[in-house]
Design a protein around this nucleic acid. Structure first.
Lengths: 248, 248
DNA sequence: AATAATTATGCAACAATTTGCAGCTTTTAA
DNA sequence: TTAAAAGCTGCAAATTGTTGCATAATTATT
């Protein structure tokens, strides 16, 4: 096998699997690992792949994980836009405090007149900036990590409220486990928020679909509307639609 | 799995869920927690995430509130420094929400352990950032102008509270009219706050001394301590000292 | 075609990196 | 204050890399 063939083979493997191990290549081509290493170094020098300890990575793989910030921000803006379109004048809107919610708060149209209820400091801050929105803060004791109000007081107060819409950003969502979270207090609060609203709207980027965490919030069937950055027709969302959830 | 892949996976988890636990990662990737910890430290060194005890946080999750320049920032910093020195571990501290209070919130020493009560969204946000401070938010309906909670609910809640210190930023202060304000709701709230605290500390830049506004909050004699940017011996402050107010 | 020059490959010894573990310290939460 | 969880440090084992060198393969030149 010629050197060029070998390197072509390596490149194909990399683009196929996103990563290769020197040992595997050495095995499948029957050359010493030294040769493989030299090939990898050469290809890396020419910018064809990224050499790492033990093997190599595809370049696209690497750039993917480097720009994940921007990528997510875009998704969240798409989600926020869809969410905003559901809010109408005069509504009582209950929201959580995730980054997606914040994004939505910033996109609320200036002329919207509504009342927003939240237990999140950052969210309340955004709502308070808005010229025509009334803000009601729920609860008193603030959890440092999540910067939202937690505990019995907040939940008690929620029980006396009936909002039209409830917007929740989600950490994890899957058909089997429903909505799950990794913080007990937050989970309790979300549960109470869902019960205090006529409609529950879950916002999440598609990558959080089909993942789960330790603490259960509620079952899939408590969700009325699901908003992701994907087109509503996307195949990934099909199982949720089949369970009676409206997809936006 | 290559080290870089693993770290990419970690970054993805962090950007997805905003936080990760070392133990969870160790489980899902099947490497020791030591390795995870080393990865997290490495990623933190490169500024890709924020390492915390037990796991890591997404970097983009923090910092919504941007530091804007405020009028007379220098004077307010001097005032804030003096104010901070009055707070001791374990105290219950009630505060308003002016720019001076925000400045004070930012200067609280890291190791201070205290409970702060406030009806101001920006103040609550600052307190929530602090590692050792418990935050209790007072009230529910938020006034747009001042971004503080107003109304009967807040005042009722204040009646059930007895704080050690009450820090108030003031709009106007003069010997004859006492503390005055230009917003009825805010004045009511300040009144209630003063009544709910053992000691009332008024913070104001000197140019607001000897000015008055339309709505009365309280008389001079309800003030225990007055903090300005001036030296305590300044002639301007003499009349207040003579009225039994401690000057800082 | 023969030979010299260049390049590629494998080997071996040594260097560096990575990883898990054990003992001990620090932090956290009750 | 105390017990559990997490972190740190040093260390050892395994894996991976590097370098120099000998040998084989390829190319160029006469």
């Amino acid at each position: 096998m010629l050197k060029k063939e070998r390197q072509a083979f390596i490149l194909r493997q990399v683009s196929l699997h996103n990563s290769v191990l020197s040992a595997d290549l050495s095995n499948s081509i029957n050359v010493s690992e030294d040769t493989i290493r030299r090939d990898l170094n050469e290809l890396a020098d020419h910018g064809k792949l990224i050499k790492v300890h033990g093997g190599a990575l595809s370049k696209s793989f690497n750039s993917f994980y480097l720009r994940s910030d921007v990528y997510n921000a875009d998704s969240k803006k798409i989600i926020a836009e869809k969410a905003v379109s559901l809010i109408q004048d005069g509504m009582f809107v209950l929201t959580g405090g995730g980054t997606t919610v914040i994004e939505m708060a910033r996109m609320l149209p200036e002329n919207l007149k509504a009342t927003f209820l939240t237990g999140s400091i950052p969210a309340a801050y955004e709502y308070a900036q808005h010229p025509n929105i009334d803000v009601i803060f729920i609860g008193d004791k603030i959890a440092k990590k999540s910067q939202i109000a937690i505990g019995g007081e907040a939940i008690t107060k929620l029980k006396h409220i009936k909002a039209d819409l409830c917007f929740l950003g989600m950490n994890a969502l899957d058909m089997e486990h429903g909505i799950t979270d990794n913080d007990w207090d937050v989970a309790q609060l979300k549960k109470a928020m869902i019960e205090s609203s006529s409609k529950t709207i879950v916002m999440t980027i598609s990558e959080k679909l089909n993942s789960s965490q330790r603490i259960k919030v509620c079952n899939i069937d408590e969700i009325d509307i699901l908003i992701t950055e994907l087109a509503p027709t996307n195949i990934l969302l099909e199982p949720f639609r089949k369970n009676g959830i409206t997809i936006f």
